[in-house]
Design a protein around this nucleic acid. Structure first.
Lengths: 202, 202
DNA sequence: AACCGGATAGGACGCTTGTCCTAACGACAG
DNA sequence: CTGTCGTTAGGACAAGCGTCCTATCCGGTT
């Protein structure tokens, strides 16, 4: 009954390879080589390459949910939880410099391919979005929680993309510092964002 | 002597297709169909697909240089020039929502492919970087001009990537508004950034 | 009218891809 | 030992790819 463990190995290796090489660029031969199984054996576990992608995305969704739940459990203050999010840029700095953000690069690639799994990939990003939104709301930013969540999401993606292009370690540190400063200015009620919000509604 | 115009048509169509579909996903057949020439005729103008990519990047470099020069010539104030840069997010909003930023998505794709033309693609981004750096320096931010340029670059890339994922028009408008606000706070000397800068040097 | 050389069309080539088939392996029940 | 069934290996298959060759076209020169 090695089927489940083999299947899991395939998804795990595919996850890694899709991240490092991209989905389109990764072949069955690549995955087979990484797992150490025969190329023809795939068909028993997955009918198509898209099914592997689907499984990889589901795996990422589960892993992300676990990570977010841990961040939530590890600190009671929403500010500190958001800092956990910001700090993944430091924790994964090496990988991000080499291959970009796994979430953003997959969304970007599947968008260009107009792939059926595009929405599923976006769902990983939405996981972060709604989680961040909750934390900002808990900070007292009920009305502009989503604006702040999207802002932080975009800042992180931009940092990852530029860091990947230039392979610049120091840049990540500087930007993360600015991000943490920005978060401090969000503590309590932000008059500027309140003004923008009421302007949009009015 | 139609050679030059055919060559230009190939590069132009390839430029557009590489943007919309990505480099790897775009085939010779795609380009041939768009230009309206035979597939076999490519070899006369370009030996390899990589040569086409090289020509496309050179074209983008030239176009970018022209655009930056125009922005420079159209306004004497560096703040206003930087606003021109920020406003491309509005001007190209539709395309960006559909296909992302042409600069960022190509850099990201070539990074994953570990392509030889990767540095050439990054050069397009560097064109913006150095131009923005000059403008920030002209605003009195000599010491942190590059930090500010990189910051604005990353913010723009993040906005484009997230807007592409979610196809959200309003998000672009909100973020551009925040970007313009941020630029206003950069006018004159920024105490916060000055403090960070001296901290790094010390 | 004959010629020449730049430009083009069409297709051959070798290779890789995702997909799919089939024979064989190996643990386990009878 | 024998049969069964989940699992695996190896390779066949058509399609599409980038690359490359060659016959043909066509405008300009003599």
């Amino acid at each position: 009954m090695q089927a489940n463990s083999t299947r899991e190995s395939i998804v795990s290796s595919a996850d890694d390879l899709f991240y490092r090489q991209g989905f389109e660029q990764t072949t069955f031969a690549d995955i087979a080589g990484a797992v150490g199984i025969s190329r023809g054996n795939f068909y028993y576990h997955f009918k198509t390459k898209d099914e592997i992608l689907e499984a990889v995305i589901k795996r990422r969704l589960a892993n992300t949910r676990n990570m977010l739940e841990q961040w939530r459990a590890n600190s009671s203050e929403p500010e500190e939880r958001i800092r956990s999010f910001i700090r993944i840029l430091i924790g994964n700095r090496g990988k991000i410099m080499r291959h970009g953000c796994p979430v953003g690069t997959l969304c970007a690639e599947l968008a260009k391919l107009e792939h059926l799994q595009r929405d599923a990939a976006n769902e990983v990003m939405t996981l972060f979005r709604t989680w961040l939104r909750k934390q900002f709301a808990a900070m007292g930013h009920e009305s502009d929680a989503d604006v702040l969540a999207m802002h932080l999401l975009a800042r992180s993606q931009g940092i990852a993309l530029v860091a990947n292009a230039y392979q610049d370690e120091n840049f990540v540190d500087v930007e993360v510092g600015q991000l943490l400063d920005w978060l401090d200015t969000c503590t309590g009620v932000s008059p500027r964002l309140r003004a923008e919000q009421s302007q949009k509604e009015g």
